[in-house]
Design a protein around this nucleic acid. Sequence first.
DNA 1: AAAACATACAACCGCACCCGT
DNA 2: TACGGGTGCGGTTGTATGTTT
Length: 341
Amino acid sequence: MGHHCCTKQKVKRGLWSPEEDEKLIKHITNHGHGCWSSVPKLAGLERCGKSCRLRWINYLRPDLRRGSFTEHEERTIIDVHRILGNRWAQIAKHLPGRTDNEVKNFWNSCIKKKLIAQGLDPNTHNLLSPHQIPVLNANNSKNIDSTKPVFSIINNTSSQTKDVKKVQPFRPHLNANDHGMNHNLYENSLTHQSSNLNYEDYNLVLKNDVKYDQSTLGFSSQHLVESTKMPMLLPLSSSSQPLDFGTAMQSWAANSDLGEAFEPARRPEAYQEMLQPTMVGQGVVAQGLDLRGGGVVQSQTNVDMGSFDGCNIDLEFMEAALMPTMYTNVGSLDQLAWDCN
DNA sequence: AAAACATACAACCGCACCCGT
DNA sequence: TACGGGTGCGGTTGTATGTTT
């Protein structure tokens, strides 16, 4: 069955021969493609217009960049995919000379598997839940103590620790000093306070609860605070409505200049201030630096800490939102969002 | 050496959207 | 407004090639 546009004609399918390629190139070079449905006839091809278009766009176009993807391109794909999902055509626009088909194939054949092997859901870029994690090859697990949970939730009231995640550590393939940041690896346990958070709890979450283990190159929330831009660094909001944590995170991720590393060592006072949220009703006022402007935020975005209850806080989202700082090579997500609209 | 299996990628298919009639 | 042609896009399939057994 051919395409509806060419059912009337006898069309050839399957791989293109060099002769067919030559005919198509010659025709388009001399006359342009015009209306694709008329190309086969004019070019002397027994193909449908759709097939000609695809062949030209994906393979014959002179401005195509052939060859394997560079690490830089790979990072760009991951970055943009995180924001856009499977919008291959949009993603390909960020990679000059690459086609949507090429990007899609590369994703499916390579990147997807890498992310899964790293314990990340390739669709959401979040950590996979235990049942989603494939039986990882034994070779890869020798450095990993699978009996040790990577994540746990501490129930404040009972002080019991409930294991909720057991994932392979995420291992970004970047060099440690990419983008001027110290990209260590996720490996260490992240613990997170859950229900009945009060100010102290929240502070504890930020300051003390999560540990960074240099010896194992652990990557913890504390380190995230220091090396990237914690969701505390929210864009200024004119809204008096408290945002739920997820919304706040999204807002933060969409407005942060992710290409710039935060350096607490240079601004210790501001850094301290960043870690001092105050309560407003049920919300916590996010207070700290406006990294885009480089100044201390005077007004704040309310973060509804109620959404921490039952640990509905999306730690996965938080990590996903932070991830661009590891991979990013787009100037900012703002820019990206504009590019894609 | 050959069969089985895995991988990469080219190509196809169906759907949605746009635009002119 | 409805319809049909053209186009673009994302998912899926098919096939060539490489690797393992």
